[in-house]
Write a protein that binds this DNA or RNA. Structure first.
Length: 260
DNA sequence: GGTCAGTTGGATAGCCTCAG
DNA sequence: CTGAGGCTATCCAACTGACC
């Protein structure tokens, strides 16, 4: 009855043990913080602090003291800030915020020097301490702006980025043609939405068999399979029936290539 | 949708007590 | 004296719900 859970827990415990042996994690504290610290230490060939309670900084690289904060936000979490309870005299040089999604795919690595934080007044005071808003750190996201070398890319690939533009490329999707599409004039999303669709505004190239290529725009929201573009509608009406599956592939530049 | 305040809960370090 | 266990302060991050 609990066989699967038993196996998964065993796997988890084994993985935890192995990660400890490999030096990725050091204690029983939260996984997110430790994995973020390890990632930055690996990227910069840094040395993690021996003491988990090390004041102000977590690792040293190139004689700079780094304070690393990790977040693995659930889909429902709207919070976009990080506690920052340090001052100019605090023993740290660089402040790094590593943001994962709940599946530990990398979303951002915000990196900023302590002095710049104070110079640019990026700290917001709250009742309990202070925070830095991520909305003010857009120019400090090094994940995509840095020119990472091959070794660093290899490390980053462990937590491959959840960047829609790259993820969407060459990915094959399937849309099941549903009843709503035909009967409700595309207004009501079907209950069973696709798990993933290109985002709104995606430019679509339809390549029907033996027909001229059609270019149109996808105007639905992600995860809803209603396609309201008239050309797409016509194409589907002419070529598909309820229950049929429309397969397509994203081929860069947000173009959609119909495969059937 | 983003911001904010408050709450919750897991974890560690350090200090203390106490039994052996 | 020593080690185990309890307690407290502190740290850290997720979550919730109100508000704009």
């Amino acid at each position: 009855m609990h066989q699967k859970k038993r196996e998964l827990i065993s796997q988890f415990i084994y993985s935890w043990k192995q990660l400890k042996e490999e030096g990725v994690i050091k204690n029983q504290k939260d996984f997110t913080g430790q994995i973020a610290e390890w990632l930055i230490a690996e990227l910069y060939n840094g040395t993690l602090a021996e003491n988990g309670k090390q004041k102000d900084w977590d690792l040293i690289a190139d004689n700079l003291k780094y304070q690393v904060k990790g977040h693995a936000k659930s889909k429902t979490s709207k919070r976009r800030d990080t506690d920052f309870n340090y001052n100019m005299n605090s023993e740290l040089d660089v402040f790094v915020i590593v943001v994962f999604n709940e599946e530990f795919k990398l979303k951002n690595i915000f990196q900023i020097s302590k002095s710049e934080i104070f110079e640019k007044k990026l700290i917001e005071n709250r009742n309990k301490g202070s925070v830095i808003l991520w909305s003010k750190l857009e120019n400090y996201d090094i994940l995509r702006s840095y020119k990472w070398n091959k070794r660093q890319m290899d490390i980053l690939s462990i937590f491959f980025t959840d960047d829609d533009d790259s993820k969407i490329e060459c990915k094959t999707y399937k849309i099941k043609i549903g009843k709503d599409y035909w009967e409700k004039g595309y207004l009501t999303p079907p209950k069973k939405a696709l798990s993933s669709l290109p985002p709104e505004g995606t430019r679509i190239i339809l390549r029907p068999r033996n027909k001229k290529e059609i270019i149109c725009n996808l105007v639905n929201n992600p995860n809803k399979r209603i396609l309201s573009n008239l050309e797409l509608k016509d194409y589907i009406q002419q070529n598909f029936e309820i229950g049929d599956t429309l397969e397509f592939e994203m081929v860069g530049d947000n173009k959609m290539k119909i495969l059937n």
